[in-house]
Design a protein around this nucleic acid. Structure first.
Lengths: 109, 109
DNA sequence: TTTGTTTATTGCAATATTACGATTAATAAA
DNA sequence: TTTATTAATCGTAATATTGCAATAAACAAA
Protein backbone atom coordinates (compact mmCIF):
# COMPACT_ATOMS: atom_id res chain seq x y z
CA UNK A 1 0.00 0.00 0.00
CA UNK A 2 2.98 2.27 -0.14
CA UNK A 3 2.87 2.62 3.61
CA UNK A 4 5.33 0.76 5.79
CA UNK A 5 3.96 -1.16 8.77
CA UNK A 6 6.29 0.56 11.19
CA UNK A 7 4.39 -0.63 14.24
CA UNK A 8 5.54 -4.21 13.87
CA UNK A 9 9.22 -3.28 13.95
CA UNK A 10 11.51 -2.22 16.75
CA UNK A 11 12.37 1.42 17.32
CA UNK A 12 15.90 0.75 16.21
CA UNK A 13 14.82 -0.94 13.01
CA UNK A 14 12.59 2.00 12.18
CA UNK A 15 15.29 4.47 13.10
CA UNK A 16 17.85 2.79 10.86
CA UNK A 17 15.35 2.76 8.02
CA UNK A 18 14.49 6.43 8.40
CA UNK A 19 18.12 7.49 8.45
CA UNK A 20 19.01 5.23 5.53
CA UNK A 21 16.11 6.56 3.54
CA UNK A 22 17.59 10.05 3.82
CA UNK A 23 20.70 8.73 2.08
CA UNK A 24 18.54 6.89 -0.42
CA UNK A 25 18.50 9.61 -3.04
CA UNK A 26 21.55 10.78 -4.99
CA UNK A 27 20.54 14.44 -4.67
CA UNK A 28 20.62 14.22 -0.89
CA UNK A 29 23.91 12.35 -1.02
CA UNK A 30 25.28 15.11 -3.25
CA UNK A 31 24.01 17.82 -0.93
CA UNK A 32 25.62 16.23 2.09
CA UNK A 33 28.89 15.63 0.27
CA UNK A 34 28.91 19.23 -0.81
CA UNK A 35 28.27 20.53 2.69
CA UNK A 36 31.16 18.43 3.90
CA UNK A 37 33.55 19.46 1.16
CA UNK A 38 33.02 23.16 1.64
CA UNK A 39 34.84 24.85 4.46
CA UNK A 40 32.30 27.56 4.55
CA UNK A 41 28.62 26.88 4.61
CA UNK A 42 27.08 26.66 1.20
CA UNK A 43 23.68 28.09 0.68
CA UNK A 44 21.59 28.17 -2.45
CA UNK A 45 24.44 27.55 -4.84
CA UNK A 46 23.57 23.94 -4.25
CA UNK A 47 21.01 24.61 -6.93
CA UNK A 48 23.80 25.51 -9.32
CA UNK A 49 26.11 22.73 -8.26
CA UNK A 50 23.49 20.04 -8.52
CA UNK A 51 21.40 20.21 -11.66
CA UNK A 52 17.95 20.26 -10.13
CA UNK A 53 15.38 23.02 -9.95
CA UNK A 54 15.34 25.25 -6.92
CA UNK A 55 12.09 23.92 -5.47
CA UNK A 56 13.42 20.40 -5.75
CA UNK A 57 16.61 21.20 -3.88
CA UNK A 58 14.62 23.11 -1.31
CA UNK A 59 12.49 20.05 -0.76
CA UNK A 60 15.47 17.76 -0.27
CA UNK A 61 17.02 20.27 2.13
CA UNK A 62 13.80 20.32 4.09
CA UNK A 63 13.86 16.57 4.49
CA UNK A 64 17.44 16.57 5.66
CA UNK A 65 16.71 19.39 8.07
CA UNK A 66 13.62 17.68 9.41
CA UNK A 67 15.64 14.58 10.14
CA UNK A 68 18.24 16.74 11.81
CA UNK A 69 21.20 15.98 9.58
CA UNK A 70 21.61 19.60 8.56
CA UNK A 71 20.93 23.02 9.99
CA UNK A 72 19.87 26.18 8.21
CA UNK A 73 20.75 29.70 9.11
CA UNK A 74 19.14 32.73 7.53
CA UNK A 75 21.66 35.31 6.35
CA UNK A 76 19.98 38.15 4.65
CA UNK A 77 18.01 36.86 1.74
CA UNK A 78 19.93 33.62 1.54
CA UNK A 79 20.01 30.63 3.83
CA UNK A 80 23.20 29.01 4.92
CA UNK A 81 23.07 25.28 5.41
CA UNK A 82 25.55 23.04 7.12
CA UNK A 83 25.87 19.60 8.64
CA UNK A 84 24.55 19.28 12.17
CA UNK A 85 27.68 17.74 13.62
CA UNK A 86 26.11 16.37 16.77
CA UNK A 87 23.23 14.64 15.05
CA UNK A 88 25.40 13.46 12.22
CA UNK A 89 27.68 11.70 14.69
CA UNK A 90 24.73 10.10 16.42
CA UNK A 91 23.13 8.82 13.24
CA UNK A 92 26.46 7.74 11.85
CA UNK A 93 26.95 5.60 14.94
CA UNK A 94 23.55 3.98 14.52
CA UNK A 95 24.19 3.05 10.90
CA UNK A 96 27.76 1.97 11.56
CA UNK A 97 26.65 -0.37 14.31
CA UNK A 98 24.10 -1.90 11.99
CA UNK A 99 26.61 -2.31 9.18
CA UNK A 100 29.30 -3.68 11.42
CA UNK A 101 27.72 -6.97 12.29
CA UNK A 102 29.98 -9.95 12.10
CA UNK A 103 30.00 -12.29 9.17
CA UNK A 104 32.66 -14.55 10.57
CA UNK A 105 30.60 -17.62 9.85
CA UNK A 106 31.29 -19.16 6.53
CA UNK A 107 28.56 -18.62 4.02
CA UNK A 108 25.90 -21.23 4.32
CA UNK A 109 24.36 -20.79 0.89
CA UNK B 1 7.92 12.72 -11.08
CA UNK B 2 8.79 9.89 -8.78
CA UNK B 3 11.84 9.16 -10.86
CA UNK B 4 15.28 10.25 -9.76
CA UNK B 5 17.48 12.06 -12.28
CA UNK B 6 20.34 9.64 -11.81
CA UNK B 7 22.18 10.84 -14.88
CA UNK B 8 23.19 14.12 -13.30
CA UNK B 9 24.92 12.45 -10.37
CA UNK B 10 28.21 10.62 -10.07
CA UNK B 11 28.36 6.84 -10.07
CA UNK B 12 29.36 6.89 -6.44
CA UNK B 13 26.47 9.13 -5.46
CA UNK B 14 24.06 6.83 -7.22
CA UNK B 15 25.67 3.77 -5.73
CA UNK B 16 25.45 5.12 -2.20
CA UNK B 17 21.81 6.00 -2.78
CA UNK B 18 20.93 2.55 -4.12
CA UNK B 19 22.59 0.77 -1.22
CA UNK B 20 21.07 3.11 1.34
CA UNK B 21 17.65 2.64 -0.19
CA UNK B 22 17.92 -1.07 0.50
CA UNK B 23 18.29 -0.23 4.19
CA UNK B 24 15.49 2.28 3.93
CA UNK B 25 12.72 -0.07 4.97
CA UNK B 26 12.38 -1.59 8.43
CA UNK B 27 11.39 -4.97 7.00
CA UNK B 28 14.64 -5.23 5.08
CA UNK B 29 16.58 -4.06 8.12
CA UNK B 30 14.83 -6.75 10.15
CA UNK B 31 15.56 -9.42 7.53
CA UNK B 32 19.25 -8.53 7.46
CA UNK B 33 19.50 -8.42 11.24
CA UNK B 34 17.85 -11.80 11.42
CA UNK B 35 20.19 -13.32 8.87
CA UNK B 36 23.11 -12.01 10.88
CA UNK B 37 21.82 -13.19 14.22
CA UNK B 38 21.19 -16.75 13.11
CA UNK B 39 24.09 -19.12 12.94
CA UNK B 40 22.25 -21.21 10.46
CA UNK B 41 20.59 -19.76 7.44
CA UNK B 42 17.02 -18.82 7.99
CA UNK B 43 14.55 -19.47 5.27
CA UNK B 44 10.87 -18.76 5.18
CA UNK B 45 10.47 -18.47 8.93
CA UNK B 46 11.28 -14.86 8.26
CA UNK B 47 7.62 -14.67 7.45
CA UNK B 48 6.83 -15.83 10.96
CA UNK B 49 9.47 -13.73 12.67
CA UNK B 50 8.47 -10.56 10.91
CA UNK B 51 4.74 -9.93 10.80
CA UNK B 52 4.31 -9.46 7.08
CA UNK B 53 2.60 -11.64 4.50
CA UNK B 54 4.65 -14.16 2.58
CA UNK B 55 4.51 -12.36 -0.78
CA UNK B 56 5.66 -9.16 0.91
CA UNK B 57 8.66 -10.81 2.52
CA UNK B 58 9.43 -12.55 -0.74
CA UNK B 59 9.43 -9.21 -2.49
CA UNK B 60 11.81 -7.66 0.04
CA UNK B 61 14.09 -10.70 -0.25
CA UNK B 62 14.10 -10.30 -3.99
CA UNK B 63 15.25 -6.70 -3.71
CA UNK B 64 18.04 -7.58 -1.33
CA UNK B 65 19.10 -10.46 -3.56
CA UNK B 66 19.01 -8.31 -6.67
CA UNK B 67 21.29 -5.80 -5.02
CA UNK B 68 23.55 -8.65 -3.97
CA UNK B 69 23.33 -8.25 -0.22
CA UNK B 70 21.93 -11.74 0.25
CA UNK B 71 22.06 -15.09 -1.48
CA UNK B 72 19.36 -17.72 -1.75
CA UNK B 73 19.82 -21.45 -1.88
CA UNK B 74 17.04 -23.89 -2.67
CA UNK B 75 16.80 -26.73 -0.18
CA UNK B 76 13.92 -29.00 -0.97
CA UNK B 77 10.75 -27.00 -0.92
CA UNK B 78 12.24 -24.19 1.08
CA UNK B 79 14.82 -21.56 0.23
CA UNK B 80 17.72 -20.76 2.49
CA UNK B 81 18.86 -17.17 2.53
CA UNK B 82 22.01 -15.71 3.93
CA UNK B 83 24.18 -12.64 3.78
CA UNK B 84 26.52 -12.45 0.82
CA UNK B 85 29.65 -11.77 2.83
CA UNK B 86 31.76 -10.47 0.01
CA UNK B 87 29.21 -8.00 -1.30
CA UNK B 88 28.19 -6.97 2.18
CA UNK B 89 31.78 -6.01 2.95
CA UNK B 90 32.07 -4.05 -0.26
CA UNK B 91 28.85 -2.13 0.26
CA UNK B 92 29.60 -1.59 3.91
CA UNK B 93 32.87 0.04 2.91
CA UNK B 94 31.14 2.36 0.47
CA UNK B 95 28.62 3.53 3.04
CA UNK B 96 31.20 3.79 5.81
CA UNK B 97 33.42 5.97 3.68
CA UNK B 98 30.50 8.24 2.96
CA UNK B 99 29.52 8.46 6.61
CA UNK B 100 33.03 8.99 7.83
CA UNK B 101 33.65 12.41 6.38
CA UNK B 102 35.23 14.77 8.79
CA UNK B 103 33.27 17.36 10.63
CA UNK B 104 36.28 18.84 12.34
CA UNK B 105 35.28 22.32 11.30
CA UNK B 106 33.19 24.09 13.87
CA UNK B 107 29.57 24.42 12.88
CA UNK B 108 29.03 27.52 10.83
CA UNK B 109 25.27 27.81 11.33
C1' DT C 1 7.99 52.31 -1.65
C1' DT C 2 9.62 49.81 -5.45
C1' DT C 3 12.71 46.48 -7.28
C1' DG C 4 15.59 42.65 -7.26
C1' DT C 5 17.31 38.46 -5.04
C1' DT C 6 16.82 34.32 -2.69
C1' DT C 7 14.31 30.64 -0.59
C1' DA C 8 9.93 28.32 0.75
C1' DT C 9 5.44 26.70 -0.40
C1' DT C 10 1.65 25.11 -3.26
C1' DG C 11 -0.30 22.28 -6.58
C1' DC C 12 0.06 18.87 -9.62
C1' DA C 13 1.71 15.04 -12.79
C1' DA C 14 4.46 10.99 -13.27
C1' DT C 15 6.53 7.26 -11.28
C1' DA C 16 7.90 4.22 -7.29
C1' DT C 17 7.01 1.63 -3.23
C1' DT C 18 4.54 -1.21 -0.09
C1' DA C 19 1.35 -4.72 0.93
C1' DC C 20 -1.38 -8.61 0.10
C1' DG C 21 -4.92 -11.97 -2.03
C1' DA C 22 -4.91 -15.22 -5.52
C1' DT C 23 -2.39 -18.06 -8.13
C1' DT C 24 1.45 -20.62 -9.94
C1' DA C 25 5.73 -23.34 -9.66
C1' DA C 26 8.60 -26.55 -7.56
C1' DT C 27 9.55 -30.10 -4.75
C1' DA C 28 8.68 -33.71 -1.09
C1' DA C 29 5.93 -37.15 0.79
C1' DA C 30 2.21 -40.33 0.79
C1' DT D 1 -0.25 -39.78 -9.20
C1' DT D 2 -2.15 -37.16 -5.59
C1' DT D 3 -1.46 -34.21 -1.81
C1' DA D 4 0.93 -31.05 1.06
C1' DT D 5 4.40 -27.55 1.72
C1' DT D 6 7.00 -23.70 0.53
C1' DA D 7 8.31 -19.84 -2.17
C1' DA D 8 7.74 -16.91 -6.33
C1' DT D 9 4.88 -14.28 -9.31
C1' DC D 10 0.83 -11.66 -10.86
C1' DG D 11 -2.42 -8.23 -10.34
C1' DT D 12 -4.04 -4.54 -7.98
C1' DA D 13 -4.99 -0.92 -4.44
C1' DA D 14 -3.18 2.52 -1.49
C1' DT D 15 0.27 5.56 -0.42
C1' DA D 16 4.93 7.81 -1.05
C1' DT D 17 8.38 10.07 -3.68
C1' DT D 18 10.31 12.99 -7.11
C1' DG D 19 10.33 16.98 -9.89
C1' DC D 20 9.00 21.37 -11.37
C1' DA D 21 6.14 25.58 -12.78
C1' DA D 22 3.94 29.07 -10.50
C1' DT D 23 3.64 31.66 -6.70
C1' DA D 24 4.48 33.55 -2.22
C1' DA D 25 7.45 35.19 1.47
C1' DA D 26 11.38 37.50 3.29
C1' DC D 27 14.72 40.59 3.01
C1' DA D 28 18.22 44.04 0.96
C1' DA D 29 19.04 47.83 -1.79
C1' DA D 30 17.78 51.62 -4.50
Amino acid sequence: MGLAKTEIFTDLQNEIAVIAKAFGHPARVAILQHLFKMDTCVCGDLVNEIGLAQPTISQHLKELKLLGLIKGNVEGTSVCYCIDGENWTKMKAIIMQFLDQDISKTDCC
